[in-house]
Write a protein that binds this DNA or RNA. Structure first.
Ligand SMILES: NC(=O)c1ccc[n+]([C@@H]2O[C@H](COP(=O)([O-])OP(=O)(O)OC[C@H]3O[C@@H](n4cnc5c(N)ncnc54)[C@H](O)[C@@H]3O)[C@@H](O)[C@H]2O)c1
Ligand SMILES: NC(=O)c1ccc[n+]([C@@H]2O[C@H](COP(=O)([O-])OP(=O)(O)OC[C@H]3O[C@@H](n4cnc5c(N)ncnc54)[C@H](O)[C@@H]3O)[C@@H](O)[C@H]2O)c1
Lengths: 230, 230
DNA sequence: GCGGGACTGTGAACGGTTTCACAGTGTGTG
DNA sequence: CACACACTGTGAAACCGTTCACAGTCCCGC
């Protein structure tokens, strides 16, 4: 009675476009932790600490010393036995691994609440992440200043990115528009998308998507806080 | 047999306060996926779909049918062989599992950019998540309206939460203030914290923390977009 | 220059999650 | 009413990431 065969067909075509298993040699959790290590190291550098052992990293990051060493071992040998790791040197290494050693331009789509928070976020700078352009489809907003930038028409994203050459994009538009924006970003040459909209994006296999889902995070917490009542 | 030798140095006071291994019966990835299933189901409901098979869920969520069934099997039997799952019934079940069936009040700390985006976010409502109070420490902001709420003094958080009884809190303050705010939230009875600040929070074992780290997400993407150049 | 102590790097064991495959079950049909 | 079908639920296997434990290296003091 309430079957939906036409949807099924449409979905099948798109199936090859579903976010793929990225055949990775390096575990994704390792990459996530590298960013944490980097933060600790930058703090340590600021505090004037020159050398850090894996034990000390455990104290500061909450990640086990063995895990830290194993994570780094995917990329090479950075420490000195008996001493530890040179803070400045390791910062450089991790930045290089994560490609944060050179400025990484980013396209932001959606000049709303989230976009607004992001465009003025001072912490990006320390990681050489830079929002290089902002796009929207609202003609009232297009042309207006937004942070240091001028809001551009999303229709021009490919054109604009031809000169910027950004490989990263952020989607901060309503869920209903997210897929269409994703398609435009991919078309414009973006290969990595940070998606704030509550939707599963379908992208070609060479494009990576990471979702920021606040509702999901709260839902997991909601489960936990109740669980422990019992 | 393999009794671990005493870890003298690591047995610091702080250590007992590091975010612990949550001894969970249900895998955390399962909980995260439940929120995704819920979103798909709510969409399906809105589209008038009454029944969904695990195959169809795979189409819409990108999560394998087997994974979907296994995830649900941690909590009971919700489907009918030969038919699939009743959309409205399964929504109710997942809401109950995640404790999203009753209104869940949340304390928000930090009336800045992020706080501003969150306080007006309409999508919380569908999940019965409600920001019940907003706190800040800036005397210029305290007393001002913020969304539908009035910004309260963070010093009064325990007092205010005595009447609200929130178990969830969101930290949207600068990293330098995050730990101190976390301590106050815990003191006020919060057991689950969503942390936007780039810091590792130290909390007692019964408190759960989840971090939203945009820089970390971008760093992982940064690695991936470069990797595929080679 | 030698020995003791500190710490790294990593193969191997472990534990947890995902995938597989199929037995079991409700549904619809002839 | 019986059979074919579609789909679920789940033990078992495969896979993957984490933890363990130790051999190897380097520094420092003497
Ligand atoms: N606000 C929050 O706290 C919050 C929390 C979690 C998730 N999100 C999600 O993040 C996304 C953005 O949220 P927000 O609060 O910033 O929304 P918003 O409504 O404030 O801003 C959305 C912006 O996107 C623009 N837009 C719409 N369609 C577009 C299109 N096709 N192309 C380009 N621009 C387009 C709009 O003009 C608007 O400026 C939403 O998907 C939302 O669900 C928001
Ligand atoms: N803006 C972004 O895009 C972004 C992105 C990722 C992470 N973050 C992180 O989220 C957090 C908040 O960011 P934001 O942009 O909203 O910052 P913000 O500066 O706009 O707002 C912070 C608010 O916290 C208040 N505050 C400071 N100390 C406090 C205390 N001890 N108790 C209570 N309130 C206090 C301030 O008065 C201010 O209103 C920061 O840790 C930031 O690093 C922000």
């Amino acid at each position: 009675m309430s079957n939906s065969p036409p949807i099924e067909q449409a979905d099948r075509l798109l199936d090859a476009f579903i976010t793929p298993m990225t055949e990775t040699r390096v575990p994704i959790p390792t990459l996530e932790r590298l960013a944490i290590y980097l933060r600790v190291l930058l703090d340590a550098l600021e505090a004037g600490i020159q050398t850090l052992s894996s034990q000390e990293m455990e104290q500061h990051s909450g990640i086990s010393a063995a895990q830290f060493r194993k994570d780094l071992s995917y990329f090479g040998e950075f420490g000195k036995p008996g001493v530890g790791y040179s803070v400045p040197a390791l910062i450089q290494c991790i930045e290089k691994i994560l490609r944060l050693d050179k400025e990484q331009p980013i396209l932001l789509v959606g000049a709303g609440n989230i976009g607004s928070a992001l465009v003025g976020y001072p912490n990006f700078q320390a990681h050489r992440l830079r929002i290089a352009a902002v796009f929207d489809n609202n003609f009232v907003k297009i042309g207006r200043p937004f942070g240091d930038l001028i809001i551009e028409d999303i229709a021009r994203v490919k054109e604009v990115n031809a000169s910027i050459g950004a490989r990263l994009g952020i989607i901060a538009v309503p869920a209903s528009a997210a897929q269409e924006v994703a398609d435009l970003l991919v078309e414009a040459g973006v290969r990595g998308i940070l998606n704030f909209a509550p939707t599963i994006l379908r992208v070609p296999p060479h494009v990576h998507v990471r979702n920021v889902s606040i509702v999901q995070e709260l839902a997991v917490l909601s489960y936990h806080v109740a669980e422990e009542t019992v």
